[in-house]
Design a protein around this nucleic acid. Sequence first.
RNA 1: CGGGGCGUAGCGCAGCUUGGUAGCGCACUCGCUUGGGGUGCGAGUGGUCGCCUGUUCAAAUCAGGUCGCCCCGACCA
Length: 560
Amino acid sequence: MRFSNMFIPTLRDVPADAESVSHILMLRAGYVRQLASGLYIYLPLGWRVMNRINKIIREEMDAIGAQEVSMPVLHPAEIWQQTGRWDAIGDEMFRLKDRGGRDMCLGMTHEEIMTWLASKEIRSYRDLPQIWYQIQTKLRDEARPKSGILRTREFIMKDSYSFDVSEEALETNYQLHADAYHRIYERCGLRFFMVESDPGMMGGAVSHEFMAPSPAGEDEVAICKGCGYSANVELALSAPSKNNPVDWQTEEVHTPEKRTVQEVSNFLKLPPSYFLKSILLITDSGPVLALVRGDQELHEKKLARVIGSHRPAQKVEVKGILGVEAGFIGPMGQKIRTIADESLRDGVYVSGANKPHYHMKGIRAGRDFQAEWHDIHVAKEGDFCVKCGQSLHVERVIEIGNIFKLGTKYSMPLKAVFLDESGQERPIVMGSYGIGPARIAAAAIEQNNDKDGMIWPDSISPFDVEILPLNIKDPKTMQAADTIYKDLTDKGFEVLMDDRDERAGVKFKDADLLGIPIQIIIGEKNLKEGLIEIKKRRTKEAVRVKVEEAVETYIAGRNK
RNA sequence: CGGGGCGUAGCGCAGCUUGGUAGCGCACUCGCUUGGGGUGCGAGUGGUCGCCUGUUCAAAUCAGGUCGCCCCGACCA
């Protein structure tokens, strides 16, 4: 492909609306343009990247026996009503009416439609298993689109759905997907890991997320270098470092106007880890007291898994329910439901004394208060792995895919059933599996860039190689460029040739910005010696070789 | 949805406080020049200052409203 025939609108300045590296570079290098908040146009280069990613996904999905289909993006409300999600999902779903006044929605995912199809067509255990997938546009009215193509309202997703006779069979398909996903991300050149993820409120279900480390990410995961334990911090278990043993007697301490852990900690000259933090929460079924260690943070989502949805109590509520003002409350003698973090089981602590301007030293679990024990703190860098005791590493990540054991959550309401060997009717056991190709692209950029631009992994670069004839008015330069271009193209490589009448500097700058992994540079000076230059985008290392050897040297370098 | 910021030429920005006929850099067009890291010189094109209403002799500038975009948070089958 010749640069002069392609639409590649590069930008010199950093667009004011872009913040994340991938967003800035995709705009600057002419890969995408924004139509509106969360809506992006993929320009030729961007679309080439998407197609290369999708090709890899297709190959690996096909390899595990998955079959590609295409589903409507416009759905009748009825099916979503049957699974209850028409009401369960709020403003995130785009809804509309057709001309007949029927409620419709735009598909944000396809469990309902896939299950509907299964319910119509699957009769017998002989029809199973099946894996159906599509690579198709989803629409979600995101509350806050952000970071360029990382979080958009309309996005392409590879979503597959497995249909099995049993949980055991589902496990097989689940594992096939996990393996396929590993191969996909490896082939796309990403650093990533699979972590345990929050199965949500449905209970029983298992799910994993695939995460690409990047500061631009929206999630955090905890990873143990020792045993490989890895989980989204939304559910990651961890053990905070232990306090040195102390042998305090129970005693009240006067702490005038010292309310926060930090204030009391400074006042008593004790580290925050010796404190017990009591937080009052209000649930539908009444107040709940949550206890975490002073140096720990309460994790709302972990707690929600124990007590359901809740909100922090207001100051007046604290006074009304516990009889003492916030800042001096403690768990001793409380009648209300109390959830304590595991890290408080052992040790002796300081807590509020349930008396204004006093704290109580020498508090012990079991003796001074009773509680239900759960891990309800936020896992932090440096905490210890609960499985092997090694230290945990917490890292910010981009979610690039997830796999989910659905069980019969959709097959039951939609009556997707089959007859087993004994003629018994049973619900199909399902799994669903998603990958966001645009997020793969964004993550690849986030993980591979420098001050000059992007640096694509070979496998998903829009082109394999870029040829830079520096002076197109020099006939010898163009002759060499055309020869190499034709040779590479004939051998099946995707080649971009910058045949624009631009100065060398402009071509270099644009080439670095576009991020194609190899540049073949053809300049007059080298050409006088019969040489051209092959340069790696990532390292800027260049070798000079004879014109005739350019193609074979390029090919040899690729395979390294 | 809560908090913050921003809308002036294709892009990046100044001008707004203190109202008085809209400016800079880049890009773009033409000519010459240059030709290995965004050449140099010259001449040009391009803007209802997001939109509406109000105040005023006069509004990019002041006031009210509205729309859009970005960031933080909440939310996220």
